[in-house]
């Protein structure tokens, strides 16, 4: 009997949570209906955001969010998986715990602190050194131009990758540690070297977990607000160069919600919030399906 009671209680909680999410999405829909009614798809594809003249287009923010988080994810994937492999496979036992603790500590730093570090350390570094270093690549549109202030998409990408690397490391490390000893020993027995074991045994085995970590990190990067707003320069223009200032969906919400009084303006901001949720949802679903496919292929 006790078990049933407990089971029903947890069921109730889950239902409540579902209902809350439904109300939440419904509320966002109804609060942004004005924008969808007036602009529809043109809102998503609109390249201009000019509240002063009542022009609302979400593309600069969608572009900024996707570009900044994707590049950050790439950087975090390389760095994070590297660190995870070191921690799980290579590092001596005595070093593993303290190093993991440090990595987890970084994940716990509040984003406003990272943002301050961004403004006072990273942005001047990008302005004075990094872009000079990148100057030979300036024939690429990606690195064209110069950033006189240092506030740029590049600074946002660095901040974001710094923030999501710990997530990737922690999840990947745990998955790598779960690779059965027998498998690895068998590979060593066949004469494989350490690199080969990691490359052909450990990583494939832990793949779905690692991808899961990357998705978590991506989600964090897409939703990150404070740290990004502080370093990205918040420009409404879409520019192919990483050295230009840009804007993201989360940062426009943080910036403009408090003082938005006009109904159409408020509705357009709410529409961006809805888009942000939909995009993270889509990415999550895509990631999940990839993970499931891999899990099936492993078995």
């Amino acid at each position: 009997m006790m078990r049933d009671k407990f089971g029903s209680l947890t069921l109730l909680f889950s239902i409540l949570f579902l209902i809350f999410s439904a109300i939440f999405i419904h509320e966002l829909f109804s609060a942004s209906s004005l924008t969808w009614g007036r602009l529809g798809v043109a809102f998503v594809l609109g390249q201009r955001w000019d509240p002063l003249n009542g022009v609302y287009g979400a593309l600069p923010f969608i572009y900024g969010t996707i570009v900044s988080s994707t590049f950050a994810l790439l950087a975090a994937a390389v760095l994070g998986i590297g660190v995870a492999v070191f921690l799980s496979e290579i590092s001596p036992r005595g070093l593993r715990e303290p190093l993991s603790a440090v990595v987890e500590l970084i994940a716990a730093i509040p984003s406003v602190i990272i943002g301050l570090w961004g403004i006072f350390v990273l942005v001047p570094f990008v302005r004075d050194y990094l872009q000079t270093l990148l100057a030979p690549l300036s024939f690429l549109p990606l690195f064209s131009g110069r950033s006189p202030s240092g506030l740029s998409m590049l600074a946002a990408i660095i901040v974001l990758s710094f923030m999501i690397t710990p997530i990737v490391v922690t999840v990947s490390k745990d998955c790598l540690l779960m690779v059965p000893r027998e498998l690895k020993e068998a590979a060593y027995g066949l004469g494989a070297r350490r690199y080969e074991v990691i490359r052909h045994v450990s990583i494939p085995y832990a793949k779905s977990g690692i991808i899961g970590g990357l998705i978590l990190g991506y989600g964090r990067a897409i939703g990150e607000t404070m740290a990004v707003t502080m370093v990205i320069g918040n420009s409404y223009a879409i520019s192919p160069s990483l050295l230009s200032p840009a804007h993201t969906m989360a940062s426009v919400l943080a910036n403009e919600f408090a003082e938005a009084t006009d109904i159409f303006y408020l509705s357009s901001l709410t529409a961006i919030a809805l888009l942000l949720i939909l995009i993270s949802l889509l990415i999550n679903l895509a990631g999940r399906s990839v993970v499931m496919k891999w899990q099936r292929s492993v078995r």
Partner: peptide, 22 residues
């Protein structure tokens, strides 16, 4: 070209020289 309001957009001529802070 711009007007008065609680927010405004930089004209295109500003380019990457224009930044915004919260």
């Amino acid at each position: 070209g711009v007007g008065r309001g609680k927010v405004f957009n930089y004209p295109e001529a500003i380019g990457a020289r224009g930044v915004q802070a919260k």
